[in-house]
Design a protein around this nucleic acid. Structure first.
Length: 277
DNA sequence: TTTGGTGTTTCGAG
DNA sequence: CCTCGAAACACCAA
């Protein structure tokens, strides 16, 4: 579910909710597999009593810095949600981890498919080092992308989804960026010329920035779609040009949008705007 | 009722 | 190095 803009929205909202400075008075782990490391008992022991000092994002990871210092990394995978609940609110189905705060609120981790993971580590780099560059960082320039692409010969879409190549893109924003750059998802990454790389670089940053501006993309019904911690839905669905827009006209040329499978993933394209040479 | 699809990642086989 | 398929799991729409 959540890609870079959705994760950034969660981080922004956690900060806006005044979570920094809160102390964790109790930790409940209802479904132990969510805790990737360390063992759940040790996780509870090490988190209890710690204060949240900072909240940040890297790729699709939420980084919660705790006093110690120690770092809690949360990856939401497909259906993970972090919710901030008031004192009196009752736990619902699929609430797997509950962090009780010293002001009475609870930070709950909700995940029907149970794919998401918590990592508690001394150094966040042990988890994050494998990630590719942050696409919105000033270091991610067209020149940097040119260099990155020069080392690879793969289909564009699977390459952009590869978090070790570039961090934060998922199925939605990859399709949107490729459409904006007029590039077919099956193009071989090694065949892009200078102007095409520039277009791709611009498109990636553009679609991610818009996603963040709109507080993420919420698809499907209320429960299943992306919700930030207060239950607010993102408005970026109105911005999607191709993703899940089958048979609707391409906003540029009116050609109906097609769905294809690229590397086992649903992929949406305008065949006219994104020709395959 | 059953089936196929889902916004993610990781792993192993070829 | 790359590609593919499967697995982790629950839900929803057709």
């Amino acid at each position: 579910m959540p890609e870079l803009p959705e994760v950034q929205t969660v981080v922004n909202d956690l900060i806006a909710s005044g979570l920094i400075g809160c102390k964790m008075t109790r930790v409940e782990v209802r479904y132990p597999r969510i805790i990737a490391e360390p063992a759940p008992a040790q996780f509870r022991r090490r988190v209890t009593g710690k204060t949240i000092t900072a909240i940040d994002r890297r790729g699709k990871y939420i980084i919660i810095d705790l006093s110690g210092p120690i770092h809690l990394l949360v990856h939401l995978r497909m259906t993970g949600h972090l919710y901030l609940a008031e004192t009196t609110s009752q736990r619902t189905a699929h609430d797997h981890v509950i962090l009780h705060l010293d002001d009475g609120r609870k930070l709950r981790y909700h995940d029907p498919r149970k794919f998401g993971r918590f990592f508690l580590v001394d150094r966040s780099e042990t988890i994050l080092a494998k990630l590719g560059p942050e696409p919105l960082s000033k270091h991610f320039t067209a020149k940097a992308l040119t260099l990155m692409l020069s080392k690879r010969k793969r289909m564009l879409k699977p390459l952009l989804l590869d978090q070790t190549f570039i961090a934060g893109l998922g199925n939605i924003y990859t399709d949107e960026a490729l459409w904006k750059a007029n590039l077919h998802p099956c193009r071989n990454s090694a065949t892009l010329n200078g102007p095409e790389i520039k277009q791709l670089h611009r498109a990636i940053r553009y679609v991610l920035r818009w996603g963040i501006k709109n507080n993420g993309t919420s698809l499907g019904g209320g429960e299943t779609g992306f919700n930030s911690i207060t239950g607010r839905r993102g408005r970026n669905r109105d911005n999607l040009k191709v993703f899940r827009q089958v048979d609707l006209p391409c906003p540029r040329c009116q050609t109906p949008i097609h769905r294809l499978a690229v590397g086992q993933r649903s992929t949406f394209v305008c065949e006219k705007c994104q020709p395959l040479p």
